[in-house]
Amino acid sequence: MQLIECPWCGPREEVEFSYGGQAHVPYPDTPGELTDEEWARYVFFRDNTRGRFAERWHHSAGCRRWFNAIRDTATYRFERVYRLDEPRPVTP
């Protein structure tokens, strides 16, 4: 089984984690002025990248903290994990 490195707890088994979708999706600046279509784009539309993808993960069976990870969607390899208050790392 693959190990995922929690920024707090270190490497743990994949089953301890749950997936939280694409990371860095900003909440609308002016939510009151959004049209239904813009809301739909914010709520439902996500990138479907092949390759490196910034995602949110949750260490649900451990420390129950959210964190971000750069994962390769083709190989499922985790390239980097980082805390929510850290900027997205620059990957080559």
């Binding site: 707890c9 743990r12 088994e13 089953v15 301890e16 069976a61 451990g62 420390c63 129950r64």
Partner: peptide, 9 residues
């Protein structure tokens, strides 16, 4: 450690 033991948290 907070983890699973025999699938129990």
């Amino acid at each position: 450690a907070q983890t699973s033991l025999g699938q129990a948290g």
